[in-house]
Amino acid sequence: MMVAALEKLGGGLTVGSKAVSEFIVLVAETMSEMLRPPFRWRDWLRQLHFVANQSLPIVLFCVCFAAMVTILESSFHMKMVIQNDSMVPGFASMLILRELAAVVTALLLTSRVGAGMTAEVGTMKITEQIEALQMLGIRPVQFLVVPRLIACVLGATILTLLASLVCLWAAQLVSEFYLGFTPALFLTAMRRFVSFQDLLFAGIKGACFGAVIPLVSCYFGFRCQSGAEGVGAATTRSVVTSSVAIIVIDFVLSFLFSFTY
């Protein structure tokens, strides 16, 4: 039984290390293809429209509610512990700018954009469309991954910044109409806790998360097994892996940024 378990563990590690090395190869290939012509501007813009424009309503809608919950919960707990919620606007703003906007936006993009990318690339793989591209001398990574990567990095950065601002606005509205903070009071409290640097870091996080989503999605798409089940499995793996990667990268970046505060 012990031997079987060790064999299973060994097999898992082998598969895992192979997957990691294949992913690194994909990342390296994508980086080198970004610098090689042809530069497919139209594809980049089409993907940017899909990533940014079409995701904007759902992202803003969701982050608004996340911001409102954050400020309400902060107020409730501060009142419970220190019987005073005067620091709520500051704390909530800090949380929104440093974590909430970037992470919620990225997780929403993972499910909306990343899942779509895996399904699209996976379907192309199993219907031999990727081989058809190769037959035309088109490099699949350059044709499929590069436009999505550029669009996602730009789109996620823009969406994160917009989401941060809309979050703050939603938080301010709740704090004004439910907690009784005037806009001036909210801004004063906010300024004490956050600075422009926080918005900049939110943008950096957005860009990093934006890079993870298409790379992971296309990786699983390229390795999709045939059949509807194969596409489904690849999409599930892609969404789970991207989400986990975003949480881990968020921790790493937050840790690194903490040295600058």
Partner: peptide
């Protein structure tokens, strides 16, 4: 590659492009 053509078992047609665009695609590329 430009001197080769292939018909795939599952046809490998670009399903997001209509018939005319499927032919135009290699010519444009």
């Amino acid at each position: 590659r430009c001197r080769m053509g292939m018909l795939f078992q599952k046809n490998a047609l670009f399903d997001s492009l209509h018939v005319g665009e499927n032919i135009a695609f290699p010519l444009r590329e």
